[in-house]
Design a protein around this nucleic acid. Sequence first.
DNA 1: CTTAGTGCAAAACCTTTGCAACTCT
DNA 2: AGAGTTGCAAAGGTTTTGCACTAAG
Lengths: 149, 149
Amino acid sequence: MPINMSDLKQRFQERQYKLTPQRQIVLQAFVDHPEKHLSAEDVHNILRQQSSEIGLATVYRTLELLSDMDVLQKMDFGDGRSRYEINEENSEHHHHHLICLSCGKVKEFEDDLLETLENVIARKSNFKIVDHQVKFYGYCDECQNKCAD
Amino acid sequence: MPINMSDLKQRFQERQYKLTPQRQIVLQAFVDHPEKHLSAEDVHNILRQQSSEIGLATVYRTLELLSDMDVLQKMDFGDGRSRYEINEENSEHHHHHLICLSCGKVKEFEDDLLETLENVIARKSNFKIVDHQVKFYGYCDECQNKCAD
DNA sequence: CTTAGTGCAAAACCTTTGCAACTCT
DNA sequence: AGAGTTGCAAAGGTTTTGCACTAAG
């Protein structure tokens, strides 16, 4: 269960934020599109298509707010816009992103090995790590077959 | 030795690029500022300060060109602009970036452990990895001491 | 009711592009 | 000489902001 609704309500209350319909439908867009990395415009389009009118500025403000609350995670794939995905709170299992340099698709890869690395870093450089983001660039299965680049 | 000048000349010739003074001073800015992650504007300012006039558009075009040539590596630290650093060709030893969530400083950490992970991924998901970028978010030594956040 | 949130349009940024002038090779 | 390069200004695209209006708690 990715999102706990009652817990969410509480986290809004704590900060005296209001749980408006706009904020709910933005979050719903991410629930409806798992494994996607939606940009602000993506979210805006999804909501317009389902006749849930919302201003683009509100989308931006909501994405920032949800990121600050650690409900979403902001990320960058080098395509000139920020993208977001739901932040799994049981962050026991991290996943990494495999970005294909040929077709641009982004795949995910489950892995926990980085915990080890985090510990090494914490010890060696006295840096208290709270999160990480890993991107691998390469060529996906399909593109490798198309042409041996 | 980070940059081999005669090798560089050759790589320009191969692609019929010209080794103009502008391109040289942009690259020089990175040589003069190791361990920094310069943005286009950073480079522009550095060059203006040393009275090496250059157009900002040229800086952008040069940074893109040098990235395509793998002389520089483009990266994103989430501050709304692209940053670049010299791409060590003896890429035997990778380094990761430790980004402090409090003061924003970026430290580097040398490490090779990720090779292992790359092999695991290549086997499991049939993805041919050619590069990776790892960012760790947390709190640096100084900021940990200032306040226990 | 009171405070926070929304929508719109304008502004702010970073980055790219068209084009005439220029310069490496 | 000729192809590639520069600089400037304008355009493009994403994100932020000011402000009057609206709605959640």
